[in-house]
Amino acid sequence: MKLGRKRKNMGGIPTASMSDVAFLLLIFFLTTTKFDIKKGLGLVLPPASQQSESTKKVKIDDKNITKIQISNEGLVMVNKEQIPIAELESMIRKIVKSNADMVISLKSDRMSAYENMVIVLDKLQAAGAEKISLSTN
């Protein structure tokens, strides 16, 4: 009589390839991950006119307003005086330092490029201006 040799069945999950699987997944996530951090210039808009009817309107003295205008071609004017963009930051810094209540009114031409507004807004924030209002011509 022929006796069959009994094979011992090992009851375990093979874990030798575990690190291979881990590395494979790791490489997948490493290559697909995109750290999508949003960065930008923050601003708070004034409430709409219907809403502000209930609230008290505050009148600002003319001496507490600095008017900045951006023309169609991207030229910048501060209180109707044209200045180069490179000098804007230092100029606004001086104005804000001399008067803490100063409101900067940024008026941009409707046909002006959006980029011009962002550049000026960036300079204003760099100069420490906190009260900025946006409007259009």
């Binding site: 601003l43 808009l45 004034p46 409430p47 959006y114 011009n116 259009t136």
Partner: peptide, 25 residues
């Protein structure tokens, strides 16, 4: 983009009382 277009969008935001805006750069 022309700024006038942005101003129109911001008007809509003000009407909807979404006052906090951020310009991505």
């Amino acid at each position: 983009t022309t700024y006038g277009y942005m101003a129109d969008i911001m008007k809509q935001l003000r009407d909807a009382d979404v006052l906090r805006v951020s310009f991505e750069a």
